[in-house]
Simulated scan of single mutants.
Amino acid sequence: MRVPFKLILDTGLPQLCPSCREPVGDGAGLCASCWSKLSPIERPFCEKLGIPFTYDPGPGIFSMQAIADPPAYARARAAVRYDDIARTMVHALKYGDRLDLAPIMARWMRRAGADLLKDADVVVPVPLHWRRLWARRFNQSATLAKLVAAELDLPVAYSVLKRVKATPQQVGLSKSERASNVQGAFRVDAAGKAEIARRQVVLVDDVLTSGATVDACARALLRAGARQVDVLVFARVVDSVRTPI
């Protein structure tokens, strides 16, 4: 009975592209036109921050930003630039219950983070504070982490990292304000330490903007005994041309 019922729903209420609101033929994801407008992040990019270069400076090169202000995490990778299409996808997943987008986003993330995932021991999602989780009903980062890890048979440690401080939204804050906002917000309890001790962790989130949140998470995981923390996101802000050194 589920098959005819689904056909009726698809005919009467076709799934819409979250960006242009046109019907999506297969009932999932973006339309072909909007897919073509996404901006994947490909090499050459900074090997530490994952931000793209305008020319190829050679392998293993870091950006000036990575050298001047190195983060706690070892490497970051993102599937796409955080442009209008990517923003619409993230918001549709996070606030619009468009869970059909998550498998496609996770597939792109696996491709972008292949060099991180092949060395990983465990995947950890960036947590929500319990109040925000209750209001939103699910953690989009945990959903993406589950899908990223599933095809690679990697364990996902959902409860290792705790958000112990209900921080205000980061939107509209400067880089320094974002860092102050998340200071002391994350913690690994005694039970969680055993799951990550001496292990290589891939930390998963939906978007990387200033990097303050993932950096605070990485510091908490490293203090708890993780051997290394890498970061994998669906989209990251690329705000200017980065010059390599």
Rank of each mutant, 00 (worst) to 15 (best):
Thr213Leu: 02
Ile41Gln: 08
Pro18Glu: 06
Arg131Pro: 00
Arg21Phe: 15
Asp215Tyr: 06
Leu161Lys: 13
Asp26Pro: 07
Lys6Gln: 15
Val237Arg: 11
Val156Ala: 05
Arg136Thr: 09
Arg111His: 14
Pro4Gly: 09
Trp134Thr: 10
Phe234Pro: 02
Ala72Trp: 05
Arg219Trp: 05
Gln183Cys: 15
Leu101Pro: 01
Pro57Cys: 01
Glu177Tyr: 03
Val207Ser: 04
Thr143Asn: 10
Cys34His: 08
Val201Leu: 06
Tyr55Met: 01
Val148Met: 02
Ala220Thr: 11
Leu7Phe: 11
Val124Glu: 05
Leu117Pro: 01
Leu133Met: 08
Leu9Gln: 11
Pro57Phe: 08
Ala114Glu: 14
Leu173Lys: 08
Leu173Pro: 07
Ala190Pro: 00
Arg163Trp: 04
His91Gln: 11
Arg187Cys: 13
Ala185Cys: 11
Leu221Tyr: 12
Asp189Gln: 09
Asp26His: 14
Val164Thr: 10
Arg87Leu: 08
Cys34Pro: 12
Ala142Gln: 01
Ala68Val: 13
Val124Thr: 01
Met105Phe: 06
Ile41Thr: 11
Ala68Asp: 05
Arg136Glu: 08
Arg77Leu: 08
Leu13Lys: 04
Leu30Ile: 14
Val201Ile: 12
Leu154Lys: 10
Ser240Pro: 02
Leu16His: 09
Asp230Ala: 03
Ala112Val: 09
Asp206Lys: 06
Ala72Arg: 08
Gly211Trp: 01
Lys146Pro: 00
Asp215Gln: 13
Gln183Glu: 15
Ser39Gln: 15
Ser19Asn: 15
Arg110Val: 04
Ala78Pro: 00
Met89Asp: 10
Lys48Asp: 12
Leu154Asp: 05
Arg107Gly: 15
Asp119Cys: 05
Gly25Thr: 15
Ala79Leu: 06
Pro71Cys: 13
Ala86Gln: 07
Asp121Ser: 06
Ile245Tyr: 11
Leu117Cys: 07
Leu147Phe: 04
Ala92Tyr: 11
Ala190Asn: 02
His129Glu: 06
